[in-house]
Simulated assay, not measured.
Amino acid sequence: MASDTVATRKTTAQIGTPGVRRFGRVNWLGLQTLIEREARRFLTVWTQTLLAPLVTAGLFLLIFSIAVGSRRGDVMGVSFMHFLAPGILMMTVIQNSFANVSSSIVISKVQGNIVDTLMPPLSAGELLVGYLSGGILRGALVSCAVAVILFPTIGLSVAHPFLALLYVVLGGALLGAIGIVAGVFANKFDQMAAITNFIVTPLSFLSGTFYSLETMPPVLQAISHANPVFYLIDGLRFAVLGVSDSSPVLGLVIVTATTAAICGIAWWMFRTGYRLKS
């Protein structure tokens, strides 16, 4: 009898829970599948998800070049177009990362197939990593397209490539985490549109994308310093140009801490099934 019990335990340990393919404590197969699904969502319609943001970023640069051009003068010791380019790149990254994650969750909830994501043996952490990976990957691909195609047209090169990549990944992670929270909270498309219009868009536009904080009144400077997206744009500007409004080290600390905090909220939502299982 004892030998049968030992044999059963060995068999269970070797095979694991039925239907679950885990290596260690992580369901790598399930996590890989979720990441591939999130990537295929935007790669299938790449003209909308990758080409369209590139065209939009190019239009921003073209319009500002025609409307302002050399009349604006230098900003922080660099030409206005060079000052503008990193901000537009980061704005494109965060908007696409947020859209990728939030739309995936909201569409699944509206169509009623969110259960297909919740039923498989994926932990809250694995769901978090899977969704974030899709948002980060989309943001990174868009940023590479902007840097490779648009930057050379205005004679701009990246001063610190690895730091720039770090800020792009952090930007995708931060807005991807916000996208998870927003997607879980919203039950309808109009709720998602309200979050985008009244929270995400102001955060991205009022963050030093088109101006230096040196030109702002002290009150607005203080408000901008409370915006984590400001540190993303300012940090990427330092990585590209070598100039910034604030310390890039301080920016890394604030962005990392903010990302960790929002990821914690997103993890809790997945862990408890908040607005997902009801």
Rank of each mutant, 00 (worst) to 15 (best):
A239T: 10
I199K: 01
A257N: 08
I233F: 00
G171P: 13
R71D: 10
D116Y: 07
L137W: 01
R237Q: 08
E214A: 13
W267S: 03
G176H: 02
F198H: 05
T117N: 02
E126K: 02
R22Q: 11
Y211D: 07
A13P: 04
V110Q: 06
V181D: 00
M81K: 03
W268H: 06
Y274I: 13
P217I: 13
L170V: 06
Y231W: 15
V45P: 00
S143T: 05
P152K: 07
R71N: 11
T11S: 12
A177I: 10
G273S: 11
G30E: 03
Y231E: 02
G58D: 01
K188P: 00
K109V: 12
S79N: 10
I136G: 02
G183A: 09
P18M: 10
L50T: 11
G30L: 03
R275M: 11
N113T: 14
I94L: 08
N100F: 01
G176I: 13
G69P: 08
F210R: 05
S143C: 07
A266Y: 01
L165S: 08
F42D: 01
F83D: 00
P18V: 03
R37G: 15
G139S: 06
G16I: 12
F230W: 06
L141S: 02
V200C: 02
P120E: 11
L236S: 01
T49P: 05
Y131M: 05
V184I: 14
S207M: 12
A186P: 08
G139D: 13
A194H: 02
V148E: 06
A85G: 06
N227G: 14
M119K: 09
T272N: 07
